[in-house]
Nucleic acid binder design. Structure first.
Length: 496
RNA sequence: GGGCCGUUAGCUCAGGGGUAGAGCACCUGACUUUUAAUCAGGGUGUCGAAGGUUCGAAUCCUUCACGGCCUACCA
């Protein structure tokens, strides 16, 4: 006995053969449509308002999303990239031969139809087809029309089915595109130029993370996929591009969760002669401008809460914020071991081998981050966890760095960039010591090539990193990063 | 990595020791303005996989695979 799947496919294959036998190419090379669905609707509504009867014959094309067969007439809904419209086939209009083709249509087939528009008795705008062409025969059944595709794994593995059957999913990715376009416009209007820097690097730096490793055969050399775009963009500031940005994919060889995908997209921007206060103003202005442009509002819903993105966002000292949350002043501890003991007392456990940079980070991620629903800037981080940022004038143990939080997520990270090449070398060396002594695989390495660039002189600079995927989550109300990445990373499955 | 939950027809889901079920989709027939079309008929399946318990396993047990959520690490 053939399986269920094979028998369906067999039925479709027989239909396919019948099409070919009757001289119809089921996969023609092109179809000249005159209008998209959206354009057709707009055209009809214009003529309707002008009190005229639409005369013009239109050619539309799309995938069959539903069909209602009435015997000697039938209705199908077709969908293209712009919308859905009903098509009406009549035996007496179409003729026996074309009508028999219409009767053979399956949900999922892609067709072209030519005819004119009218309104049915119930007022639905409909194209009465005088011609019908098969543009691509579908051999697989589509998910159910009413519930759509629900199976989460299938939605991610076969995203095209998700997009065909779930309008909400189409909407999220459409918005993602608009968000990134709005971001580019904003940066362009501010005088930033967009650049591209290498993904393949001899050493991965610019962030605390483990890289993916690969190998170049011709060079016979190991290369790393970038974990940040930071160090190359600063080289461009040194090169005299005063405002640069890159929107690009970066790769981190770490865990996967609702907030983490191994490859994700960041915006990094660098502005000469600016500090982190200037960058703060830019972030709050940019995010609210994007929301206004794409969503038409600066208020977004996220789970149970409504988030107001209009500037100004509150600025709070990281040190005071942590002290408010748990009574612990991280500056009161001179060495990592005593801070670690104090954290243990308030129930925050950290591994024995954790490097100093991990300690405060742990306090932030467990106590602060989940509680910051409204957009908030936290300012001035410990120097140990920010090897690329400049110290504050008022306390050498802190750097001019901020992170922006919203919806319980970190969405941006920025600092006044360290431009003293000798101090930068010392900071790298401190990181290198953690790597060798504490086994901190995420510590920065001494990057001689970057240090050489710094030695030529980098102007005072404000730098910024924004997690685009998380920003899209925030603006579309999605609770999982997989809902805003078209093809999220999943474990491979054995073939069917 | 740890914990909990899930995997049954193409899709959405019931069924929890005794012949494999429903709706949609699909197939056959009727119907020339339907729209979750309607009406009559048809079940198309490796119950995620492999072992085990049992007279008998979709159901109970073990292991494994994949996924979801929480947790740990990171952004």
């Amino acid at each position: 006995m053939p399986s269920r799947l094979e028998s369906i496919t067999q039925q479709r294959l027989e239909k396919l053969q019948r099409l070919r036998d009757s001289g119809i190419d089921p996969y023609p090379h092109r179809y000249r449509r005159t209008h998209t669905v959206q354009q057709a609707v707009a055209l009809f509504e214009r003529t309707e308002r002008a009190g005229r009867l639409p005369q013009r014959r239109l050619a539309l094309a799309g995938r069959i999303a539903a069909s209602r067969d009435m015997g000697k007439a039938c209705f199908v809904d077709i969908r293209d990239g712009t919308g859905k419209i009903q098509v009406y086939f009549r035996l007496d209009v179409l003729g026996a031969q074309s009508y028999s083709l219409a009767k053979e249509l399956d949900l999922g087939d892609i067709i072209g139809v030519k005819g004119h528009l009218f309104r049915t008795r119930s007022g639905e705008l409909t194209l009465e087809a005088q011609e019908l062409h098969m543009l691509a025969k579908s051999l697989q059944p589509l998910p159910e029309k009413w519930h759509g595709l629900v199976d989460v794994e299938k939605r991610y593995r076969q995203r095209y089915l998700d997009l065909i059957s779930n309008p909400q999913s189409r909407e999220v990715f459409h918005k993602r595109s608009q968000i990134i376009a709005a971001m580019r416009r904003f940066l362009h209007d501010q005088g930033f130029i967009e650049v591209e820097t290498p993904v393949l690097q001899p050493a991965a730096g610019g962030a605390a993370a483990q890289p993916f490793i690969t190998h170049h055969h011709a060079l016979d050399q190991d290369l790393y996929l970038r974990i940040a775009t930071e160090l190359h963009l600063k080289r461009l500031i040194i090169g005299g591009f005063d405002k640069v940005y890159e929107i690009g994919r970066i790769f981190r060889n770490e865990g996967i969760s609702t907030k983490h995908n191994p490859e994700f997209t960041t915006l990094e921007s660098y502005q000469a002669y600016a500090d982190y206060h200037d960058v703060m103003r830019m972030v709050e202005t940019m995010v609210s401008a994007i929301a206004q442009e794409v969503l038409g509002t600066t208020q977004v819903s996220f789970g149970e809460v409504t988030i107001e993105l209009a500037p100004p966002w509150p600025r709070k000292s990281l040190r005071e914020e942590i002290e408010e949350r748990c009574g612990l002043d991280f500056l009161a501890y001179e060495d990592p071991a005593s801070l670690r003991r104090a954290m243990l007392e308030i129930g925050v456990e950290v591994e024995e081998t954790a490097s100093p940079s991990h300690l405060v980070d742990k306090l932030i991620s467990s106590l602060v981050e989940p509680n910051l629903m409204q957009p908030t800037f936290l300012l001035d981080y410990p120097v140990e966890m920010s090897p690329l940022a400049k110290r504050t004038p008022y306390n050498p143990r802190l750097v001019e760095r901020f992170e922006a939080f919203a919806a319980g997520m970190e969405i941006a990270n920025a600092f006044t960039e360290l431009n003293d090449p000798l101090e930068q070398r010392e900071r790298f060396q401190m990181q290198e010591r953690w790597r060798t002594q504490l086994g901190d695989q995420e510590a920065e390495r001494v990057d001689e090539d970057f240090l050489l660039a710094l030695e030529y002189g980098m102007p005072p600079t404000g730098g910024l990193g924004v997690g685009i995927d998380r920003l899209v989550m925030l603006l579309t109300g999605q609770q999982s990063i997989r809902e805003v990445i078209l093809f999220p990373q999943l474990k491979s499955k054995p073939p069917f």
